[in-house]
Design a protein around this nucleic acid. Structure first.
Length: 511
RNA sequence: GCCGCGUUGGUCAAGGGGUUAAGACGCAUCCCUUUCACGGAUGAAUCACGGGUUCGAUUCCCGUACGCGGUACCA
């Protein structure tokens, strides 16, 4: 029987989850689902001092909004729990000590000051960041440089210490990456990374390996920023469980800021006024809010879609994919190697497409929420849907349904008089007085009949119909833009249309 | 500095020894519409550079440049 595919997403709850993180979750989810495997959410709270309250729930909500609900998670449990690294603390020390016993790791007693002293004395123009490695470790205070008795004494005295991996000297390691192929590393160039911290918490390096093993993870996918530490993970697998048990790796490209270069970061959100999180994130400490796509008026379908194709495509011209379609068509081999700049204009285009694509019932639910938020009185669902149908093609973002649709629920309170004043005359006043009477006689109130009656009257009064359309629009909407004016009147109904004409007519004397 | 990963229009990108080098976003012009959008049409704009290999490189190889990432008791 084939081994069941299990993919894990392991974010750290240090505040929010930006685009790159959500995309990693998405790709993980897609791969898991297309292989009928499990999608596991594990929380990397290996550094509790950086843990931000509410961040874990936020991550879960984000996944849920995107439709990427995990099969196992800290909130819902699962057969391999606990799924929070801080709750697995006991497990790690044992593995770290096993590594010490087999000679692949060692105790290090250096204080932060001593570490800093080492770095500053070795720092040169040629080597700006000296490492704790095969060249320096024998000059430090650790179980390799100290006499056995001395180490034992320090340990028994409860001296604070960490456990570091002992990187082998000058060995070439080959890592097979599903999207990059074989990547080569020389072990001499990698430092002796801390595996277990003085507070007994593991670092990410130890935690991923141990948890991936214990949770039977078969595929380990993460951002490209992890590639340089991959040799540490590879070695840990070799020493602890055997390389043949190691999951398959893939390192996803970074999502870059829209302008300039570099990794997209929280700062870019403020600086450029664009969302970079799925949902608004309010930092409980600073109170700072980072804006999210949901609150900006994006549909989750659009958000997932735009994220999926930022770094992947299926080789066809298709750009619009639903989540089930992505599960079907996604392939990790076609994920790009190079980072992609995020483009907000294109993101909005995706949303516009999805606003046109989703069923009216779903769209109506979203729009209703917005209208209720602005206390718009919605007479009935049929009317709501008619309004949506009329304006959906012109909306990129959900809040535009309010801007463009509110006049169907509330008469305009002010009018763009400047647009019509200069060309206004008594003949036009006369026309609009007459048109209300003509409208009264229309049996079937629809855009076509309205337009016919309107134009016939205009011609009989020797006014160009075109000159009357703008004033008519101003009466109905208050401004120059919007859907075709007769469609608006048709939807508004006879009474409301007549009322709005009269509203403005009573004002013409004041111009 | 060192190590790793990258590099096709402004952006996302297809392609992968011989192509008029797709498509999308954005931009421009025109059409539709006496509004604004939507839609349609057209257009400007790309293989980082230098060497190889080859009859022929955007495509393969090697350099260089540039960018990014890493170089923490952060993830």
């Amino acid at each position: 029987m084939e081994k069941k595919i299990r993919v894990r997403f392991a974010p750290s709850p240090t505040g929010g989850l930006h685009l790159g993180g959500v995309r990693t979750a998405l790709y993980n989810y897609l791969f898991a689902k297309q292989h009928k495997g499990g999608f596991v959410l594990r929380i990397e709270d290996t550094d509790q001092s950086r843990f931000v309250a509410g961040a874990e729930e936020y991550i879960y909500e984000t996944l849920k909004w995107c439709g990427l609900e995990p099969d196992e998670s800290p909130l819902h449990g699962g057969p391999f729990g606990p799924y929070r690294q801080s709750e697995r603390k006991k497990i790690y020390r044992e593995y770290a000590e096993r590594l010490v016993q087999t000679g692949h790791a060692y105790f290090a007693f250096d204080t932060p000051d001593e570490l800093e002293a080492m770095r500053s004395t070795h720092r040169t123009a040629v080597n700006p960041s000296p490492q704790y490695d095969h060249q320096t470790r024998m000059h430090m205070r650790n179980s390799l440089s100290l006499a056995i008795g001395e180490t034992k004494k320090l340990l028994e005295a409860g001296t604070p210490h960490v456990i570091r991996i002992r990187m082998p000297d000058n060995e070439t390691l080959y890592l097979n990456d599903m999207i990059r192929g074989q990547v080569e590393f020389n072990t001499s160039l990698v430092d002796d990374k801390v595996l277990l911290k003085a507070d007994n918490m593991p670092t990410y390096h130890l935690a991923v390996v141990v948890d991936d093993f214990l949770m039977q993870i078969t595929h380990a996918f993460r951002g490209e920023e992890w590639l340089p530490s991959a040799p540490v993970h590879l070695l840990l697998w070799r020493y602890l469980y055997g390389e043949e048990k190691m999951p398959a790796w893939a390192h996803f490209p970074l999502i870059l800021k829209p302008d300039g270069n570099g990794k997209l970061s929280k700062r870019d959100s403020d600086r450029l006024g664009i969302p970079i999180f799925a949902m608004d994130w309010k930092d409980p400490g600073s109170g700072e809010v980072i804006s999210g796509f949901r609150e900006k008026g994006f549909l989750p379908e659009a958000f997932v879609n735009l994220l999926a194709v930022l770094g992947w495509n299926d080789g066809t011209e298709q750009e619009l994919y639903s989540l089930p379609e992505l599960v079907e068509k996604f392939s990790i081999e076609r994920v790009h190697k190079a980072g992609a700049k995020f483009n907000y204009e294109k993101a909005k285009w995706f949303n516009q497409e999805w606003i046109r694509k989703i069923p009216i019932e779903e769209l109506s639910r979203e729009v209703r929420k917005i209208y209720e938020h602005y206390s718009l009185q919605i007479p009935d669902e049929i009317y709501l849907r008619s309004v949506i149908q009329l304006i959906r093609d012109r909306c990129h973002l959900l809040p535009e349904f309010f801007l463009q649709g509110k006049i169907f629920f509330e008469a305009p309170l002010q009018w763009d008089i400047d647009a019509i004043r200069s060309k206004w005359n008594a003949a036009k006043t006369g026309f609009f007085k007459d048109i209300t009477e003509k409208f009264a006689d229309i049996a079937e109130w629809n855009a076509y009949n309205l337009e016919t009656v309107f134009k016939e009257l205009a011609i009989s009064q020797q006014i160009k119909p075109g000159e009357l359309q703008l004033p008519f629009r101003i009466m109905l909407v208050g401004e120059k833009s919007g859907p075709p004016v007769f469609d608006i009147a048709a939807l508004l109904g006879k009474n409301e249309t007549t009322k709005r004409i009269n509203n403005l007519l009573t004002q013409t004397g004041n111009w």
